[in-house]
Computed example of a mutant assay.
Amino acid sequence: MSKLEIVWSSAMDEYEKLTLEILLDRYPVVRVNGERGPDKLEAELGGPEPDGRMARKIPLDDLIEALIDIRKTMASGK
């Protein structure tokens, strides 16, 4: 069974508690970035690239809404 972990990934000497990652079997799946403030959290997906960046960014709330819609659609069979 796969293991999900949530870990702080901010550089502690620069940005304390600014970025969280969800890891699946120790591999980053999504990084949530608070650079723009707590009301404008961004989900970073599709990486990491060789330089450590994630490939795509989307507002976290948009990603959450899309995942909820997927769950509702799959549960209803439509």
Score class of each variant (00 low, 15 high):
residue 1 M to I: 03
residue 1 M to L: 10
residue 2 S to N: 09
residue 3 K to G: 14
residue 4 L to K: 04
residue 4 L to V: 09
residue 4 L to W: 02
residue 5 E to F: 00
residue 8 W to S: 10
residue 8 W to D: 10
residue 8 W to E: 08
residue 10 S to V: 11
residue 13 D to Q: 12
residue 13 D to G: 15
residue 13 D to T: 15
residue 14 E to D: 10
residue 14 E to V: 11
residue 16 E to Y: 03
residue 16 E to Q: 11
residue 17 K to V: 09
residue 18 L to N: 11
residue 19 T to P: 00
residue 19 T to S: 03
residue 21 E to M: 08
residue 22 I to C: 14
residue 23 L to H: 05
residue 25 D to F: 06
residue 25 D to K: 08
residue 25 D to I: 05
residue 26 R to E: 07
residue 28 P to H: 00
residue 29 V to I: 13
residue 30 V to L: 14
residue 30 V to A: 14
residue 30 V to P: 01
residue 30 V to H: 02
residue 31 R to G: 06
residue 32 V to I: 15
residue 33 N to F: 07
residue 35 E to L: 15
residue 35 E to P: 04
residue 38 P to L: 13
residue 39 D to Q: 11
residue 39 D to S: 14
residue 40 K to Y: 11
residue 44 E to I: 01
residue 44 E to Q: 09
residue 50 P to N: 13
residue 50 P to I: 08
residue 50 P to M: 06
residue 51 D to P: 09
residue 51 D to W: 10
residue 52 G to C: 09
residue 52 G to Y: 01
residue 54 M to P: 02
residue 56 R to H: 06
residue 57 K to H: 05
residue 57 K to D: 04
residue 57 K to E: 08
residue 58 I to P: 01
residue 58 I to N: 10
residue 59 P to I: 04
residue 61 D to V: 13
residue 62 D to G: 03
residue 64 I to H: 03
residue 64 I to S: 03
residue 69 D to L: 07
residue 69 D to Q: 04
residue 72 K to R: 15
residue 73 T to F: 11
residue 76 S to W: 02
residue 77 G to R: 14
residue 78 K to Q: 14
